[in-house]
């Protein structure tokens, strides 16, 4: 591993002022350290945020929203009873990701910042425009069975691997960041970038900016009774999604009054199309209505390689997730969160 300097500031202000070009902020390390070991990322300086107490709180806000410090562990958020009751599909998505050990180490800020798992990005010996601009995209003609079918470009067909970000996108989360120029809010829809011709620009963060918190607006809690995350994958657990769906509904008198819908594992960012949600408003929660929403959400989908099956799979998963959501949020977290096999009930 390349040698690097290591710092451990005690406040966000100190962390930001310690930043210089070539530095990287370190959260739980479950992604960044792996990438450093294999030479994909080579920061000169690691600024370890692990001792910044102000980033560790889960606050349920008086208006019904929530504010989650960037250093909150994935597990701690998912198992926070008040949070999981208000935003069950966020908890479900987190518990569908990685393994228990990784969730105990990984932070929510890090989850937001994680890199694509495109194998060509993770291999320093392959051309990759995202890792090394201008070198080309080895994935286009390579092993791309689980890469993007939406929002991709000739320069990059990577997907965002996060589960947590999918319901956050559906619920309109806001990312609080702080940097040399001060604090600002970024709506999650604007946080991750589609590749375009500059896939190396992955997020809206400016140099030196770091995520300090994720905010969920009060209206997002209104979906708590009908909100599910569905993750389709080859292995029952501990695998990245082929397709995932966050689906949340408000249903009154047998009619959907409002819907939220986002897709994961299909694009470089969680995929949300508000027009698809609007199609559901006023509709009865039927398979036909759900299929129309699925078509709208998948508008423009096309294979970037040998991955056309993901479009059909996504269409089916969207309908299923909406059906699961319409059936109601389970009282307890399923033992297999986000699974269509989730018949058993866990201890949570």
């Amino acid at each position: 591993m390349k040698r690097f300097d290591y710092m451990r500031p005690l406040s966000v202000a100190d962390a930001v002022s310690a930043y210089k070009p070539g530095a990287a902020y370190l959260g739980g390390g479950t992604n960044l350290l792996d990438l450093m070991k294999i030479g994909v990322m080579q920061p000169e300086t690691l600024i370890d945020l692990g001792r910044i107490a102000e980033l560790e709180a889960i606050e349920m806000l008086p208006d019904g929203g929530a504010r989650i410090g960037a250093l909150v562990k994935n597990s701690d958020l998912a198992y926070d009873r008040a949070f999981a009751a208000a935003f069950p599909m966020v908890a479900e998505a987190i518990l569908a990701g990685a393994s228990g050990q990784l969730r105990n180490a990984a932070t929510v800020g890090g989850n937001l910042m994680q890199k694509t798992r495109c194998t060509y990005f993770q291999d320093p010996h392959s051309p990759c425009n995202r890792r090394e601009p201008g070198t080309g995209c080895a994935a286009r003609e390579g092993d791309n069975a689980n890469l993007a079918v939406l929002g991709w470009s000739d320069a990059c067909i990577a997907t965002n691997p996060s589960d947590m970000c999918v319901p956050l996108a559906a619920l309109g989360a806001v990312i609080e960041v702080q940097g040399p120029a001060g604090k600002r809010d970024i709506p999650i829809a604007n946080f991750h970038f589609l590749p375009g011709d500059q896939p190396e620009n992955e997020t809206a963060l400016q140099p030196g900016e770091l995520v300090v918190a994720i905010r969920l607006p009060a209206e997002a809690a209104a979906f708590a009774r009908n909100a599910r995350y569905l993750k389709v994958r080859e292995r029952t657990s501990f695998a990245f999604a082929l397709v995932s769906v966050a689906a949340a509904l408000q249903i009154e008198g047998g009619r959907i009054t409002e819907a939220r819908l986002a897709l994961g594992a299909v694009a470089a960012k969680p995929w949300r199309v508000t027009a698809a949600e609007e199609l559901l408003a006023g509709q009865a929660p039927t398979a036909e209505a759900f299929a129309r929403a699925a078509d709208a959400l998948l508008q423009g989908a096309r294979p970037s390689g040998e991955n056309g099956y993901k479009i059909e799979l996504a269409r089916r998963a969207i309908v299923r997730a909406l059906q699961m959501s319409a059936a109601g949020t389970p009282k307890r977290m399923p033992a297999l969160p986000a699974s269509s096999f989730a018949e058993e009930v866990s201890h949570v």
Binding site: R117, T119, Y120, D123, H125, A138, E141, G142, D143, E234, R235, T236, S237, F238, A239, F240, L336
Partner: peptide, 25 residues
């Protein structure tokens, strides 16, 4: 093992990509 047909290299050379069953399987 998933080979890149152009380079002959295996692209899933870790246990995140080379799947074996987990307990839930």
């Amino acid at each position: 093992a998933r080979f890149d047909k152009r380079t002959g290299r295996i692209m899933n050379t870790d246990l995140a990509g080379y799947h074996i069953p987990v307990n839930a399987d």
